[in-house]
Amino acid sequence: MAKLMLVSVSAIALLMMITNHQAAAQIGGRSLYDSTMPPGQIGHMQLLRRTAMRGHLQPVRLLAPEGARVSVFDGGTFQDLGSHDVTVGMLIGSVYRVKVTEIPGHAGLEIFPSVEVINRLYPPPGLELKFPIEVHLDETDLTTAGNGAIVTRIVYLEDPEAAVPEQQQRDHQPYFDVGPGRDPLHVAQQLGRPMAIVRCGGINPDSADLHEFTFGAPPIQLYQLMPTSSADDGRLGQATLFNDFGR
């Protein structure tokens, strides 16, 4: 009888230990965000958490392969900015549809990636345009999307204390792929501060409503950069606006 009670008590104790251990594992929590969320949702949740980001125009540098052309949706149409390297101001939490055409070696290929800015930078005054968020629309991403795959690229700000000690080129953004079962947003979160989400997929404007396709056409700021006046302190010359909101 005593042995039976001892066995039963031990079994109960073991069960409670296992239950507690599972509860302990859950205390670590799971992320509120993941990269499979609909475009714009993460940005909106960021705005709920940090109201200071509302209305902030974050300069973003869009860099496509050399020779390609980048267009942004403004004034009811895609405006060709005439270059593969453009800097625009984007609102945090909004999703912008971008058009990349004339990709060298891929005649006729048109890709429409979406860019969602989810965080902001705090540069010294006057240097906002010199230090934008770097969003590279890599040729590999564009051609992979052209072949029918969906490419999700999380751009993150590297933690300087854990930075990779290697020289980085300004026109090349190092990246790596995560495998199945891993969320790139979570991985980026471990390595630094996620700043933007780029989604490239096989979608074209003919198959959907243009308003929906451009995520409601949020306002975008176009900059016209003057030549650099002095490289002494790294400040850019005066930046002028040639197209304001909806003007």
Binding site: P124, G148, A149, R153, P174, R182
Partner: peptide
């Protein structure tokens, strides 16, 4: 010294319903 540096994490998903 203000000097942010960016890197990227990428995930490629292929369609499975075709």
């Amino acid at each position: 010294i203000y000097s942010p540096r960016f890197r990227a994490v990428r995930k490629v998903t292929n369609l499975v319903d075709a």
